[in-house]
């Protein structure tokens, strides 16, 4: 088995054995990786395909947590009733990715590991304070997504590790969330800027807890702390102007030097308004 150049195992254990041999390139849905092979002459010596492993699939609740298998496709995430009801920001983000063909193949695990600044599932997962569960042959460990991504250049992922699943606390029933993606067109679009928004309103409809995570700004998605704090106490009739100003200023603070800054400092207000509109639906 270890002499194989292309291995398509059906159990996680077999996959980890293969990985242990070294010099193996992991392929999930392949929507990012295969292009590198076709167009950029990437020549992996050995390929491990994870798409046939049932243990890496599934979206379920365990206790107070949701567990999502790393090989869950964007289509599966978008169609999942639990996510639609309790985790709208994640199911909407999954639905916004690429096209039906990309969604049927691309995986949440691949999205995370791809390191693309515009990866759409990451802002919701950051907002949900998700944890990654990494498996290797001899060791399993948990790592928060933020820790995982906040390494400056290298991902905190060992050569012999696989992202087995992602989990986060099941959002409360009263929580409202939304994901807004701003692309140049309405399908097959790369995010120009995106926003994952979670709010928990109290019984009067005033926000008592909020989280804003912005995507496609800078290297990694980022939590807009000041702006999200300003949401506390607001309700659907409130004036959002101060929050918009704060978001705009935040964009300048983090990417002011970039060519895209003049655009994104305006656009962030636009997506915030749309998010605000839709979250109260």
């Amino acid at each position: 088995m270890t002499e194989k150049k292309f291995y398509c195992p059906t159990t996680l254990k077999k996959a980890l054995y293969f990985l242990n041999v070294g010099d193996v390139t992991i392929i999930a849905g392949g929507t990012d990786l295969v292009k590198e092979i076709t167009k950029k002459s990437l020549r992996p010596k050995k390929i491990l395909d994870l798409t046939h492993i049932p243990e890496l699939k599934g979206i379920n609740v365990s206790g107070d947590k949701i567990r999502i298998g790393s090989m869950s496709t964007f289509s599966e995430l978008a169609a999942n009733k639990l996510l639609q009801e309790r985790c709208r920001l994640l199911s909407e983000a999954a639905l916004s990715v690429g096209s039906p063909q990309i969604r049927n193949r691309g995986t949440i695990g691949g999205n995370i590991v791809s390191r693309s600044p515009a990866a759409d599932c990451i802002p919701p997962l950051m907002a949900l304070d998700a944890k990654l569960h990494l498996f290797s042959l001899n060791n399993n460990r948990d790592l928060s997504l933020v820790e995982f991504l906040n390494q400056s250049t290298e991902l905190d992922l060992e050569e012999d590790e696989i992202v087995e699943s992602i989990s986060f606390k099941l959002p409360k029933k009263e929580e409202k969330s939304v994901f807004i993606k701003m692309g140049r067109r309405n399908a097959l679009a790369i995010s120009r800027i995106s926003m994952a928004l979670r709010v928990i309103p109290d019984q009067e409809g005033n926000i008592r807890k909020a989280c804003i995570c912005l995507g496609a700004v800078g290297l990694y998605p980022i939590i807009a702390e000041e702006a999200q704090d300003m949401l506390i106490g607001l309700n659907k009739k409130s004036n959002l102007e101060p929050v918009l100003k704060a978001l705009s200023k935040f964009i300048i603070d983090i990417i002011g030097y970039r060519k895209s800054a003049p655009y994104k400092k305006q656009a962030v207000k636009g997506i915030a308004l749309e998010a605000w509109d839709r979250i109260w639906e």
Binding site: I27, K35, D49, T51, P100
Partner: peptide, 19 residues
């Protein structure tokens, strides 16, 4: 269609469709 779902065959490595 791969297992009934639409996919782009140009970004799937052939052996990935085993079985």
């Amino acid at each position: 269609l791969l297992n009934g779902k639409a996919v782009c065959s140009c970004i799937i490595l052939a052996p990935s469709v085993e079985n």
